[in-house]
Design a protein around this nucleic acid. Structure first.
Lengths: 206, 206
DNA sequence: TTATATACAAACATGAATGTATGTAAATGG
DNA sequence: CCATTTACATACATTCATGTTTGTATATAA
């Protein structure tokens, strides 16, 4: 046994996370044994238990690694300090970028797939769901600010409530992501996504 | 051992399905052992295996029992043979009724919860997902017809595409149901749902 | 240079869930 | 009324995942 340096250990940790994502994605979280994950990562369960308390913690690590940067990105792309000064364009770009990211980045795509259709939100995982819902509230708040901007700039119908528009957009996009992720062999939706987003935004324009 | 009559057996079968729903709902599908289900139903695993091949078949039975009538209801409430002659009202009523059903009927609510957040869609369950997606396509088609009606009757902005509107509505509602089901302790959304639906429809009106 | 902590592998112990096979009493059909 | 299913309960065999413990070679700190 070759004792690893600190950097080597970090590599191993990442290998395990990657293997977990891959395994969760094909087998589902609850049917993914840590033995399978370990084998795919080229280590033994010993390594897995060294780096993570149990499967739940491993799941958390995998989830956080992808979603932390995503959450951070939201404000900067959505809010007024962005270079794009038209709030409706900012919103449209945010939605389009997210879909494009799902198209291009397999890691993000797999992670979305797992949290949306390969994970059961009971007991220990209920906290993950609460976390996700918390992020959602954050997104809605930011979208609402966007619509408030648009409202003030006179870009949208003045008797539409920003709060309601924000919820409508969020639910639309949430539904879109769910479909997008689940209906993997329906390329129609995947191609249609951009058009749908633009149509959704246009519906609000004056 | 008291040998049961045919009707007794049917009662047992239903008890098992009910127990399964309850167990799936609290424990998640994959962590629900048939032993637990059996005990809750007041029988042994013998009875479960007598009525159902395995957990997957039991899940199918539970799912179908709630969703078959739901699917059947769609066309009759959504399409033009309905008493309500205004297509936008038909659509609004359909959405509102669905939310109301979720509010009132615990069986329907639990079943939605299970398929939306307490089930992993891999291997044997992937077929369930395909089934659900099939139903979705059906709903979208029907909603599209509604918008075509509305279009012909001049109720909506003439340069809005019925197909895109239908998808937008479906994604909105899909997102709404997901949130509604998952965010069980957020009564805000549950109270807001009606308002959101009406706002969503109003957005399309001329 | 040596003691200690690190980063795992390997072995062990346990428990839980599944599927099947067998037993059985009573309903049912002839 | 008798033979045969039916509708289960009970018992058995097997697989599999988990968590823990132990072993160990080596990086690292003192």
């Amino acid at each position: 046994m070759v004792r690893k340096t600190k950097e080597d250990a970090e590599v191993t940790r990442q290998l395990i996370i990657d293997a977990a994502r891959e395994t969760f994605s094909t087998t589902g979280v609850s049917k993914s044994s840590l033995e399978k994950v370990a084998k795919l990562a080229g280590v033994t369960r010993g390594a897995v238990y060294w780096h993570f308390e149990n499967k739940t913690e491993l799941f958390h690590a995998m989830h956080e690694q992808v979603f932390s940067p995503l959450i951070d990105r939201i404000e900067s792309t959505l809010l007024a300090n962005n270079h794009e000064k038209n709030p409706l364009f900012r919103l449209e770009n945010f939605l389009l970028d997210t879909v494009r990211l799902l198209n291009e980045d397999q890691v993000t795509r797999q992670t979305y797939e797992i949290i949306m259709s390969k994970c059961e939100y009971v007991d220990e995982f209920a906290t993950v769901l609460q976390q996700i819902l918390g992020n959602c509230s954050g997104i809605v708040e930011n979208i609402e600010k966007v619509y408030q901007d648009a409202h003030q700039q006179g870009l949208i119908n003045p008797n539409l409530s920003p709060a309601q528009l924000a919820m409508d957009t969020h639910l639309f996009f949430s539904g879109l992501l769910h479909m997008w992720v689940k209906d993997s062999d329906n390329s129609r939706l995947r191609n249609q996504a951009e058009t749908l987003i633009k149509a959704h935004i246009n519906l609000r324009k004056k």
